[in-house]
Amino acid sequence: MENSGDASAAQRASSEPRRTYTVREAAAILGVGAATLYRAIERKEVPFIGIGRRRLIPRVWVDQQVEKTA
């Protein structure tokens, strides 16, 4: 049975802008390969949120990098 609190949280989340990107999404936005971004993560040049093996890149950081190159 679905919890109504979970459903309303999911609705709010879908209407709000995403706060993170996957490595592939961030790489595409930044114009680099995913492997390049993974190496930068390993060198601690890129902040990330790790959940298990998954790496999520904060949207704020990606936006800052885009602004630097604009």
Rank of each mutant, 00 (worst) to 15 (best):
M1R: 11
M1F: 01
M1E: 06
M1H: 02
M1Y: 02
E2K: 05
E2H: 03
S4V: 12
S4A: 08
G5V: 07
G5C: 05
A7W: 08
A9T: 12
A9H: 04
A10T: 12
R12T: 11
A13L: 11
S14Q: 09
E16G: 00
P17V: 09
R19Y: 03
R19I: 15
T20Q: 11
T20G: 04
T20E: 15
T20P: 00
T22W: 12
V23L: 11
R24A: 15
R24L: 15
E25K: 13
E25F: 11
E25R: 10
A27I: 10
A28F: 07
L30S: 03
G31S: 02
G33F: 09
G33Q: 14
G33D: 14
A35L: 13
T36L: 04
Y38G: 03
Y38P: 01
A40Y: 05
A40V: 03
I41N: 06
E42S: 09
E42K: 13
E42A: 12
R43W: 04
K44E: 15
K44G: 00
K44S: 09
E45P: 01
V46K: 04
P47Q: 07
P47E: 14
P47K: 13
F48A: 09
I49P: 00
G50D: 04
G52A: 02
R53Y: 02
R54F: 10
R54V: 13
R54N: 11
R54G: 00
R55P: 01
I57N: 07
I57Y: 03
P58C: 01
R59K: 08
R59C: 04
R59V: 02
V60F: 03
W61V: 08
V62C: 06
D63C: 08
Q64D: 12
Q64R: 11
Q65V: 01
K68R: 12
T69E: 11
T69G: 00
A70G: 08
